[in-house]
């Protein structure tokens, strides 16, 4: 009985509620919910702040984020390794067919994979995988800093504060995402 609560994935409404609760907790703690600034902080921590004021790591303002991200990694370990969902992500069948056309076999048997990450594709020994990972990461890093926020900062926090700039940024997220998924991915993968 308890196992049924700890292991399976959550319904989307519970997940959404949990994210809103995180926004509430961070707001009450006097901080703004936003993950992408972590990349800027990493730049600052490895010394980029000496050359460029933009990256300067301000211990008082920025250190909480490192604790938060450390916790996020541990949380992923708890939910995904210690108490993993025994079932793979139940994708829509049309999506599974579309993936097969791209040459990606979705793990329909749970023993073959959990459907979190196409690790059959993103392999350490594939040069193409390295290029895609670095290029994709670059776009996310560059884009989120230029946008001054990512999904958490704009789609969750910004929209919760009725920000027009955030709405426009989220529209941009979808322009880019739709372009990639429908027109570019078929050629890249």
């Amino acid at each position: 009985m308890l196992d049924d609560l700890i292991y399976p994935s959550w319904h989307w409404s519970i997940s959404g509620l949990a994210i809103a609760f995180i926004l509430f907790l961070l707001t009450m703690a006097g901080r703004s919910f936003g993950v992408s600034t972590t990349f800027k902080n990493i730049c600052g921590l490895v010394g980029a702040g000496k050359k460029n004021e933009f990256f300067k790591f301000d211990y008082k303002e920025d250190s909480w984020r490192l604790f938060f991200i450390g916790g996020a990694i541990i949380g992923g370990f708890i939910a995904g390794v210690i108490f993993p969902n025994p079932f793979a992500v139940s994708l829509d069948t049309d999506t599974i067919f579309a993936l097969e056309k791209l040459g990606i076999v979705y793990p329909t048997d749970d023993s073959l994979g959990r459907g979190f990450f196409p690790d059959e594709y993103f392999r350490w020994d594939s040069l193409k995988a390295w290029i895609i990972a670095l290029a994709g990461g670059f776009l996310v890093g560059f884009g989120s800093r230029y946008a001054d926020g990512c999904t958490s900062g704009h789609a969750i926090t910004g929209l919760s504060h009725f920000q027009l700039p955030s709405l426009l940024t989220v529209i941009g997220f979808f322009i880019g995402g739709l372009l990639m998924t429908h027109f570019l991915l078929p050629y890249i993968l």
Binding site: C150, H154, L168, G176, M180
Partner: peptide, 13 residues
């Protein structure tokens, strides 16, 4: 907003 968002979205997908 639109350009930066689009760059992010390309990487996200």
């Amino acid at each position: 907003h639109l350009i930066s968002g689009t760059i992010f979205g390309l990487g996200w997908a």
